[in-house]
Simulated scan of single mutants.
Amino acid sequence: MDKKVLIVEDENSIRGFLRINFQRNDFIVIEASSAEEGLRKAILEKPHIAVLDVMLPGMDGFSLCKNLRGRFPEMGIIMLTARNQDMDKIMGLEQGADDYLVKPFNPLELMLRVKAIIRRIEGKLISADEEIIHRYDFKLNLYSQKLYKNEKEICVTPKEYLLFKLFIENPGKAFTRDELLNIVWGYDFFGDPKIVDVNIRRLRTKIEENPSAPKYIETVWGTGYRWNDEKEG
């Protein structure tokens, strides 16, 4: 089915960031900067997923969530907030939200949660084969989030898993360090950018026969890193 997502967020930069990530995952994106506008567009467009900011001008995200849930029982709803308060989470879920993420959030984590909701909406499970990505001797299980090489599990951290997933889903694409930082750590990450290089180095020690001369995750000098697609096949 054509997947539609409604993004209700009053901050232009965050809304644009979400739009780009959803479009990369083949969603039709509908945008609104207020709850009132979001409700009108939801009635007209009938999106499958709604991503709602809690703090909105006028009607807040909780009220919009309750309204949408009453009108669209099968719609997937994810709440976004800058506040990490348990009461906010409870309130969002009580108003009918399916899930809840605190800013700054990881865009890949958001997509995994959205994917789970889409499966529910479609009323069927994706087959096991579709949940597994194969590259060379590697197998990545998207359901269990486990990585295997020659059928032997490789223990990776959550960030290493996300890096590996990003590379093998985009073979041959060169990612800058800033792109990797924004996608894997989130656009609001304020730590040392060298964390990208540190995690790449650790991942190479786990997947490469010779980490000092990597053949899978290549360094693109002056840019960043890419997955070597020339070895495919």
Rank of each mutant, 00 (worst) to 15 (best):
L142R: 09
E179N: 05
L108M: 15
E94D: 13
P193K: 10
L80F: 15
Y225I: 11
R201N: 14
L39W: 07
P73V: 00
K66G: 10
E160F: 02
I183D: 02
E208G: 07
H48R: 06
G70I: 03
V156I: 04
V29R: 04
R135N: 02
E37W: 00
D98L: 05
S13L: 13
D197G: 12
G186Y: 05
D192E: 12
Y143V: 11
L140G: 01
E130D: 15
T157Y: 01
F175D: 01
I200W: 08
N141S: 12
F22E: 11
D88W: 01
V196Y: 04
Y136E: 15
R69F: 06
L64E: 03
I14E: 03
P104L: 11
R19G: 05
N12R: 08
A128E: 14
L80R: 02
I154P: 07
G186H: 02
K89I: 01
R83M: 15
E218D: 05
Y187N: 12
I168M: 15
K206P: 03
L44A: 14
K46S: 10
N84T: 02
E208C: 06
I20Q: 13
K103C: 06
F164S: 02
A50N: 06
K41C: 10
G233W: 01
N67F: 00
R226K: 15
Y143L: 15
F105L: 14
G96W: 06
N21F: 00
E130S: 12
N67P: 01
F17D: 07
N182M: 09
M55K: 08
K3G: 03
F138P: 11
F72I: 03
L44M: 10
K46H: 06
K89C: 04
A82L: 06
D88P: 04
Y161A: 01
K194S: 15
L203Y: 03
E37T: 07
D2C: 02
S144G: 00
I217M: 14
V102E: 05
M1K: 07
E31W: 01
L180E: 02
F27E: 11
Y148R: 05
A128T: 08
Y148L: 12
A50E: 08
K103M: 05
L162T: 05
P158H: 06
R19H: 12
G224H: 08
S144I: 09
P211N: 07
R40C: 11
E179H: 03
C65M: 03
L80Y: 04
G92A: 10
I20K: 15
S63L: 07
F190K: 14
D2N: 15
S127R: 04
K124E: 12
D178G: 09
N228A: 08
R71D: 08
